[in-house]
């Protein structure tokens, strides 16, 4: 067991992910810009390519303010708690047939289990700030995230039933063997997954925890400088991770025509999901909080349960 290559892999991946987040933020601003007939950022470097770099540098030299009334220890810990799981879940993503780190046989469970820890960071950040907007934002955020975690988790059960394994690589190999991406036989599960993933990521139209028109900026109102940057970073890394999971379980992972390597197809599919999040943000207005909660409990959870019942009956019927 060689430790050095492992550390190297994790270190390189961390840097790639940071670069990916920088690219994703630029991509988001450009996409939304063009959708609203603007050009988006275009001052820093050609095509605004250095915009995110400039933003990060600016955040780095901003004063770090911890309010008097805040609960200092929890306040400092919250962004770290929010960031760590979002990066740690990437350990189990298999980028291609040969490029992967941890080949866990409980991959799906590890993924969804660890990703729900992010909720704790939101709660800690909002509560410790001792600020009314932050508290409201974090309470809303937690209620929303735990409500939509259930349909998110249930929507994957259909895939697990069909494949008979929790290993992310087995799921891709299964899709290779039947020659079909699982979003077709699991269409209902896929739709439930996509909707609850948006709510889980706190992205528009379900960005109520950060509803800037009513809550300033929600749970991280009191955060400034690099601490705030880590909340934003966690959000984007989590978006990348959720896109990677969707790619793996519903879109056949690295599968694609042979003339290009598997990593390319994986990244292409992942970019497609990222694009969908941005597209929805530019298209839909923010949902109302009571509508959001009702929709989760009264529509998505029954649909996800229905999907499990249908899939399991078909599975046993076919043998």
């Amino acid at each position: 067991m060689e430790l050095m290559p492992m550390v190297l892999y994790a270190g390189v991946l961390l840097q790639l992910i940071l670069a990916g987040v920088a690219a994703a933020i630029l991509f988001e601003r450009k996409v939304i810009g063009y959708m609203q007939l603007r050009t988006g950022p275009n001052r820093h470097g050609p095509w605004g390519i250095l915009q995110t770099v400039a933003d990060v540098l600016k955040l780095l030299i901003k004063e770090d303010i911890i309010p008097h009334a805040a609960d200092r220890k929890v306040f400092v810990l919250a962004p770290i708690i929010a960031f760590v799981p979002s990066f740690a879940i990437l350990a189990t993503v298999s980028w291609s047939e040969n490029l992967y780190a941890a080949d866990l046989n409980i991959g799906v469970l590890y993924f969804i289990g660890l990703s729900s820890v992010t909720t704790l960071g939101v709660l800690m950040g909002g509560w410790s700030s001792n600020n009314k907007y932050a508290l409201l934002g974090s309470m809303r955020g937690v209620a929303q995230m735990i409500s939509y975690e259930i349909p998110l988790v249930l929507s994957i059960v259909g895939v697990v039933i069909l494949v008979g394994s929790l290993n992310l690589r087995d799921i891709v190999f299964f899709q290779e063997s039947i020659g079909l991406w699982l979003f077709i036989p699991q269409f209902l599960g896929f739709v439930v997954y996509m909707i609850s993933a948006i709510a889980e990521l706190n992205r528009s139209p379900f960005d109520l925890p950060e509803a800037e028109s009513e809550l300033v900026s929600g749970y991280h109102t009191e955060y400034s400088g690099f601490r705030m940057a880590f909340f934003m970073l966690a959000e984007y890394v989590y978006a990348i991770a959720i896109s990677a999971l969707a790619t793996t379980i519903f879109f056949g992972g690295w599968l694609g025509p042979d003339f290009l390597p598997g990593e390319f197809w994986f990244l292409l599919k992942m970019c497609f999901f990222m694009f969908v999040w941005f597209w929805l943000r530019a298209t839909l207005p923010r949902a109302r909080v009571d509508h959001l909660m009702n929709f989760g409990w009264k529509v998505l959870i029954p649909l996800a349960l229905l999907n499990i019942v249908i899939t399991s009956i078909i599975k046993v019927w076919m043998g």
Binding site: M1, M6, A10, V84, F87, A88, A101, L104
Partner: peptide, 19 residues
Amino acid sequence: FSNYTYVIIFVLFGVALPV
């Protein structure tokens, strides 16, 4: 064990970056 070593390394990197 090597699979879970990866998990531990990833968690450590995740903690190290913000700190």
